[in-house]
Amino acid sequence: MNNSSTLWGSAVLLALTLSLWQWAPGWVGLPEYIFPTLTSTVVEAGRMWSESQLLQHSGITALEVFLGFVLGSLLGIAVGVALGLSPTAEAVLSPYILALQIAPKVAFAPLFVMWLGYTMYPKILVAILIVFFPVMINVLAAIRTVDPDMVNLVRTLNATRWQIFTLLEFPSALPNLFSGLRIASTLAVIGVTVGELVGGNLGLGFLLVASEGQGNTAGVFVAITGLTVIGIVAYAAVILIEKKVLHYMPKASRTTV
C-alpha cells in the first residue's frame, strides 16, 4: 500500500471516529453527563483554554513526560549496557531490578509525593521507573546477542574494548534500543499521569481529577485527549529520530510497530 492510500485510509477512519463521537451518544440515548459529544468537548476545551489555563497545564505535563522519558531512557541504556557486558553484574543485580519492575509503580507515587511534595519531581520519578525497564531489557538483549564471530574478528584487528563497543556492540543494539524507546515513549505519559492523579496541583492529570470532582465529563475527555496527543507526539518523535539514526539499515531489519 502506497503512502497516499495510507493517508486516505487514516483520514477516512479519523472522520468516521469523529462522526461516531458526535452522533452515536444521541443514537443510543446517552446523556451529555455520561458521554459528551464531540462539539460539547470542543466547547469545553475552549472554556478550559481561557479559564483553566489548559495550555499551561498541558505544557507542564509535556515537560514532565519529556524529562521522565529522557532520564529513564538514559538510565535504562546505561544499566542495559553494563549488564550486557558483565554477566556477573547481571547475576547480582537482576533479582533487584526484577523486584523493582514487579512492584506496582502506582504504589511509589504517594511515597514520592510525601518525600518531594506537590512538585513535578514525583511525576518525573514515576515516569523514570516505568520507562527504565523496557529500555534496559531491550539493550541488554541486544548486547547479549551480538555475533561473537564478529567480536573475535574485530579483536584480531587489535581493537580496544571501547572500540569493540562503539563500532560493533552499540550499533548492533540500536534497532532493539529504538523498539524499547517506542514503548517507553507511551509509558512515560502513563507514569506522569499516575503521578499527577495521586498528588499534583498542575498538569493534565490534575485537570482530569478536578473535572471528575465537578462531574464535568467533557472536561475529563479534554484532559484525556490532551494526554493522548502528548503521547502521540512523543511516539512520533521517537520514530523520526529512529529514521534519522537507522537510515543506513535495511528496512526489513527495522521495527515495524
Rank of each mutant, 00 (worst) to 15 (best):
E242I: 03
V233S: 07
A234K: 09
I232D: 02
I241T: 02
H247W: 13
A252E: 15
V233Q: 06
A223P: 01
Y235R: 11
I241L: 13
I239C: 07
K243P: 09
G226L: 10
Y235L: 12
K243D: 15
A237Y: 05
A223F: 01
H247V: 12
L240F: 14
T225I: 08
V245R: 00
K251E: 12
L227M: 10
Y235Q: 12
T228S: 15
L240A: 14
A234H: 10
G231H: 07
L227V: 04
L240P: 04
E242A: 00
G226C: 12
G226M: 11
V220L: 11
V220P: 01
L227I: 09
K251M: 06
T228I: 12
F221T: 03
V222N: 01
L240D: 06
V229Y: 03
T228G: 15
V238S: 01
I232E: 05
K251F: 05
V238Y: 03
I241G: 01
V245Q: 02
E242R: 00
K244Q: 10
A236C: 13
T225H: 02
Y248P: 03
V233W: 07
L227S: 04
V233A: 12
A236W: 13
G226F: 11
Y235N: 14
T228V: 14
A236S: 15
I241K: 02
A236K: 14
I230A: 04
F221V: 06
A234F: 14
A237I: 09
A237P: 03
I232S: 05
K243Q: 15
A252T: 15
G226V: 11
I224V: 13
P250W: 10
I239E: 13
F221E: 04
V245N: 02
T228H: 09
Y248W: 15
P250F: 08
E242M: 01
L240S: 12
V229C: 03
Y235I: 08
M249Q: 15
K243G: 15
